[in-house]
Design a protein around this nucleic acid. Sequence first.
RNA 1: GGUCCCGUGGUGAAGUCAGGAGUUCACGCCGGCCUGUCAAGCCGGAGGUCGCGGGUUCAAAUCCCGUCGGGACCGCCA
Length: 575
Amino acid sequence: MRTHLCGDIRFGQIGETVSVCGWVGRRREHGEHLAFVDLRDHSGIVQCVINDDVDVRSEYVLRISGVVRERPEGTVNDSLPTGSIEIGDCEVQVLRVATPPPFPIDARADDVDENIRLQYRYLDLRRERMQKNLRTRSKVNAAVRSAMDEQGFVEVETPMLVPSTPEGAREFLVPSRKEPGSFYALPQSPQLFKQLLMVGGVDRYYQMARCLRDEDLRADRQYEFMQLDMEMSFVDQDDVLEAVSASVLAAAEAATGERPTPIEQITWHDAMDRFGTDKPDLRFGMELVELTDVFGDTEFKAFSGADAIKGIKVDGGAADYGRNQLDKMTDRAKGAGAKGLVWMKVTDEGFDSPVAKFLSDVEVGALKSAMAAETGDLVLIVADEWSTTCEVLGMLRNDIGRPPVHEGPYRYVWVVEFPLFVGRDKETGAPKSGHHPFTMPHPDDIDKFDTDPMAVRSIAYDLVLNGWELGSGSIRIHEPELQRKVFMALGISDEEAERKFGFFLNPFEYGAPPHGGFAFGLDRLVAILAGEENIREVIAYPKTQSGQDPMTNSPIPGDPKSLLELGLKVLPQVD
RNA sequence: GGUCCCGUGGUGAAGUCAGGAGUUCACGCCGGCCUGUCAAGCCGGAGGUCGCGGGUUCAAAUCCCGUCGGGACCGCCA
């Protein structure tokens, strides 16, 4: 039907008779005998000069045959790749007339209500931005597959209908018709299947796995999302990081055309200490400064006796933040668990701050020098438990300094040595797993299990890109003794372990190799590489924050006949 | 479950704080003119349940209450 794509025609085709197909973008009519039509396909647009009187309107689908020619002097359009040529002597074939679209099929639709864009997603997808995003995603997928294949990984598909598991994210349930009252779950990840593949001798597994979690949606979260899921046998942490790095960097290069720098590493403790988060955005500084010693003997009640005192400095921020904003910042700090937030504006004399009068001259001097603060800077200080101090300042650091997603370099970082346990169960008081209960404890910390369980590190690691958590993984426990020890610390009895995880752990008895793995979110990676703040922009048919699809109107009420067949009865809504 | 922002012809916005006739701007759409435009230009026209419901008022897009929808965030996401 066509000989060329619209956006591909260049000077080299001058004189050739070509046929192109696409949609009518903008048209400029000058009466019956001259009209310019921008014909658009996924590759771009090309100007067609039409001298006949044909009725051609927005988004009509056309096949145009004509001769490529140089544009007359003075009519070249430098803003188009095809701007120095045009197609003349056009024969126009209308393949399909079209109703005017509800919004312009160009960059102006970026401002259109997202609900409308999703309702007419097929029109939204015609736009250059969405075409680019879909193609970036495709390239990333292809690069990841190829990188995994080159490293000897075997792509294995795991089931979508799986048993419900007690731990982790809320699952989507699928009723069984053959066994009314019984349900499958949709997988929140292929975790157990991939570990059993290791028992099965696959050695190196990967999958572009669709994962489903029935948790509330966010800019970086959808009910269904894609992970590069992988698992390796007979490896240590470095082997896994190397394999994942190769894949991620290949994907990044495929998407951006630039080879990223090698991925750096930071321990979880350092990440918290310096950036106040386990997913630090390394594109900007504003690191947390240790101030505990500065106020070691302070008379100021809010500081004295605090477990950890830290501060961040906003260069030249004194003038940018008024009382109102500082109050809001304080509220946010309190909302995040801090007892309060101390702000200090640096002046020539000292500090302008509600608490300045409580500080001695020595403290003021030491603070200034520790923060390297200069006149006009804003200093924010939190004094609290170490983790609260770090987390609150980390949040403020992001609020204040974090650049938009499309800005700055790509800063990949491995966060390693995550704690094995995070927080405690509200009811039982037992520690909770940071990653999952099958994560290998750090060998140097085994002796702390009884004395200081919360200090036990694990062989678990996250991959972070510009402040987004791309994914996480761990070396798994493959020995029963160690697994029992971890279950004990988690307050899980042998009976409970057998009941909850027996189907998963019993196969290990037949010879589980040492193994470990990783999974990273492809949607997030693609979004960042495409410069999008929101993963919905890199998903062809995403759902809204309330889990609806405005195009198909799903979810829809169950058909009574189907419900009957499945043995289901819908109860009235209870408030 | 919670906090905040948004909802006005097909699209985007202004009007809302401080109530006074569905008012305005841009794009799009329809018709006319136009042989070198490129967000073409000029002339004319059509198009609205101001998300929905209730309340206050002589009078509500505007104030109040509720509700629905969208978005950002917190909780949640082993």
